[in-house]
Simulated scan of single mutants.
Amino acid sequence: MRMFIIAVMAAFITGCASNVVTDYNSATVFGNFTSWAYAPGQQDSGFTSLDDSRVRAAIEREMTRKAMKRVPDTEADLLVTWQIVPEERLEQVGVGLGFGFGRGNFGWGVSAPPPVREITEGKLVVELADRRSSEVVWRAASRRYLNENQSPETRRKLIDEVVSEMFSKYPPGLN
């Protein structure tokens, strides 16, 4: 019974953890921002990747929900940038093996660690910068990752969920 309660508590605590991390300039008055545009480097310069178009659609939806007006970048209060940052991690792909023998309080054992493989995943980072000062005033980073094994629909849903959660924390202090 004790193990069941511990498992339920661990699941509850894990379920309450946020999937995004935000940071912001506490001296910024976010109520002064009413318009936005993509930063000049984020605008159409050649081909747009599939994930970029998904992120762009999600950001536009969330900024519209915040009653922010999209304008040309020379007139915008905020400039929006994003990037998908690659991160490497190790994933266990099997089980470790081991054996041992002994008697009483003494014994010997040998084990082999489980096999692992290196996986590259992408973490979404969105930043809002004050156009006049050219300083980032708000930043959000995902704790959930995109990887190459996800289907297009799974990727779209993940991006929509992450961007929605990011902007649920904008402007800061209203949560």
Rank of each mutant, 00 (worst) to 15 (best):
I6E: 11
R70P: 05
T120K: 06
E75A: 15
I6S: 11
A67I: 12
L128P: 04
R155A: 04
R56P: 05
A7H: 08
T81L: 06
Q42G: 05
L174Q: 11
F12K: 08
N147T: 04
S35Y: 00
V136C: 05
Y24F: 15
V136K: 10
R131Y: 06
R143T: 04
L78D: 02
F12E: 09
V137I: 09
V95D: 14
E127S: 10
K169P: 08
D160R: 03
E165C: 03
S164V: 08
C16P: 05
V116F: 11
L174G: 10
L158D: 01
L90D: 09
S133L: 05
S164F: 10
G46W: 04
G94D: 04
P40Y: 01
L124Y: 01
D52Y: 10
G173E: 03
V137N: 01
V71N: 01
S18Y: 05
F12S: 08
I159G: 03
D77G: 02
V116C: 06
N149K: 13
N175I: 11
G94E: 08
V162C: 02
G122A: 00
Q42E: 11
V93Q: 03
K69W: 11
P114S: 09
N32E: 13
M166A: 04
E153Y: 15
Q42Y: 13
T14R: 12
L146R: 04
R143H: 07
R156W: 06
S164E: 09
